[in-house]
Write a protein that binds this DNA or RNA. Structure first.
Lengths: 160, 160
DNA sequence: CGACGATACTTAACATGTAAACTAATCGCA
DNA sequence: TGCGATTAGTTTACATGTTAAGTATCGTCG
């Protein structure tokens, strides 16, 4: 075929220079659309995707964590954490607690309100995942995850 | 197996709730890492990924375009375009030109400097794509693109 | 021809992400 | 002991993306 879907979606006049570039743009575009949908869902509950991510990480860990450690599990660079935590604290979804043994460290504690918000979001989030990606078969989803994981291998290595 | 790669990467203690969620997080994480690498490359040349994207769209079109039309080809919402164009204009990579027939419309024109910057970036960009994704076979890349395109079908339908 | 709605774009206010520079506390080791 | 390097976190400055509201221009219909 002379043109393909993404090319058409982007109204590109020329074909892609390489399958690598096409795949990279597909990742970018799919991510943008997914993020956009979750952004809207989270907004109904007063949080942003990043804020939700932090709450999820805290719940997953099951106990307070230093903010840098949370940052490591996200893609984010350190300074972004400060403001993010500031806003979560303002909503009383987390609490800062200085570590007594090492006074440089500040633990982030998930509050009761934070737990409750997460609980309220569990079903809508799972449902949105299904609504957006449920038309792919289990084996397609598994293959997609496999390919994306393989894609990241090289990227991470180069990261140093 | 009890755990998988992404689960491990995220230091998650519990498995994913669904293959849909796992795939969505894989898209997110892969995108972040890809974007991060391109961010660094573009920065060496004084532009950001969004700015580069605009220049590419202009070159692809081959003639000046209204800024809203450029915005449509990106994921972006309208107001972001103004600042983006402002900064490109400050670097003399594009130029604003008011349309004489319809004075509401402002055409964005790729300048000679813009063309030159794009030309300088062509090789490094292609090379980075290969460096980051070249370890996937052609058929894997094709399958990845196919799955991502299929993933977007539902997302787009659900839009607005 | 003149007001009203639509269209193209801008402005403002805010959340996020990046880099660079800073502060405070701890560690290592002479 | 005590000084320099390291580590945790904050601040600042700026680019980007979002929503809501504003401005200018155009088209149309009464």
């Amino acid at each position: 075929m002379a043109t393909n879907k993404l090319q058409n979606e982007l109204k590109k006049k020329r074909p892609f220079e390489s399958p690598e570039q096409e795949a990279a743009l597909n990742v970018l575009r799919t991510n943008d659309q997914l993020q956009n949908r979750f952004l809207r869902l989270f907004r109904e509950y007063g949080v942003t995707p990043s804020q939700y991510n932090i709450l999820r990480i805290l719940r997953g860990e099951g106990k307070p964590m230093p903010s840098l450690e949370i940052g490591e599990r996200m893609i984010q660079v350190v300074p972004a954490m400060t403001g993010l935590i500031d806003r979560l604290e303002k909503q009383s979804l987390v609490r800062r607690e200085r570590c007594l043994e090492d006074r440089r460290v500040i633990y982030i504690v998930l509050t009761e309100q934070g737990e409750q918000l997460l609980a309220k979001l569990d079903d809508p989030v799972a449902e949105l995942h299904r609504a957006l990606l449920g038309h792919l078969s289990k084996s397609e989803l598994a293959e997609l995850s496999r390919l994306l994981e393989k894609a990241r291998q090289k990227i991470q290595l180069e990261k140093e």
